[in-house]
């Protein structure tokens, strides 16, 4: 009976994702160009990938930086703002709505907004200069030192509000008597946050941390629309690199090897979280 409820969606997954992925995985062991015959070459693709491919190492580095950014910045913003919002009443509904609106925009729209805003000559830097604030006009997406950060910034602009709403909703489910009890114990706001709020929304935070860890290794949209991984590979991600190998260079076998590596890394992330959960954290 329980499995009867689970079976339909599982079957769908088997067809849409699992079976084709197994096909894709086989190609990682071949020199397949994307069509025609594929010669079995064993682990050669992986050898090249791990030992000879500087662009691949660079991409992994960028994914790790991305992970570090998204495990911290949006979470801190979302937690702080949810806490502030939970205390307010007047206008709180309107403010929540405002924070959530960027999440509603399609990614192509978000990306084009930020492409305009980050433009060196015509973007927000120039606007600030017109108001007398100098020093912000910079080719953020064209500078190899800022491109990755600029993309993460744009992505986060659209993302953190959603996270905040999830946290706020979770906070509202914390029984009020816990706060009353904390107050009786003489807790200040910070202690209240640490001892009541955070434990109360722990499972939501934990879940979103886990999803972030997994998604960080799959990111494609924003990078592709904003920079295609450039300039000079400074925002190249595993997914954009996979795409380029498979569809622009016709190295589908090599691309599949990159894909499997991505999955493996994301899988390790997921396993860490599952193990933590076994150790008594609840998800």
């Amino acid at each position: 009976m329980p499995w009867l409820f689970i079976a339909p969606i599982t079957l769908l997954h088997l067809v849409v994702v699992v079976a084709p992925s197994i096909g894709g995985m086989y190609y990682a062991l071949t020199d397949w160009s994307g069509i025609g015959k594929a010669d079995f070459i064993g682990l050669e693709n992986f050898r090249t990938l791990f030992f000879d491919d500087g662009n691949f190492r660079l991409a992994i580095r960028h994914n790790v930086l991305w992970l570090a950014f998204f495990l911290t910045v949006p979470f801190i913003m979302a937690l702080a703002v949810a806490t502030l919002l939970a205390q307010t009443r007047r206008g709180s509904m309107a403010i929540r709505t405002a924070f959530f609106v960027p999440y509603v925009l399609p990614s192509v729209v978000v990306a084009s907004i930020w492409r305009m805003l980050l433009d060196p000559r015509l973007g927000f830097g120039t606007l600030l200069e017109n108001w007398g604030i100098e020093g912000f006009a910079h080719p953020y997406l064209g500078d190899k030192n800022t491109a990755l950060g600029a993309i993460a910034f744009a992505d986060n602009w659209h993302w953190w509000g959603f996270l905040m709403i999830l946290f706020l909703t979770a906070m509202q489910n914390i029984p009020a008597d816990l706060y009353d009890a904390a107050k009786i114990d003489g807790a200040n706001r910070w202690q209240e946050f640490l001892n009541v709020t955070l434990p109360g929304i722990r499972s939501t935070v934990f879940f979103m941390l886990m999803m972030t860890a997994i998604w960080s290794f799959l990111v494609f949209d924003y990078v592709w629309i904003l920079t295609h991984g450039g300039p000079a590979g400074s925002s190249e991600m595993l997914a954009t690199y996979l795409y380029k190998q498979a569809f622009q260079r016709f190295e589908a076998g090599y691309g599949a090897a990159i894909g499997i590596t991505m999955s493996a890394i994301a899988g390790i992330m997921a396993t860490i979280f599952v193990l933590l959960r076994r150790r008594g954290w609840d998800v």
Binding site: D119, P120, H138, P139, G142, G230
Partner: peptide
């Protein structure tokens, strides 16, 4: 103005 500026300039601009 600079290589970085070139890299972010699109055709219409």
């Amino acid at each position: 103005g600079s290589p970085e500026n070139f890299l972010v300039t699109d055709f219409s601009t």
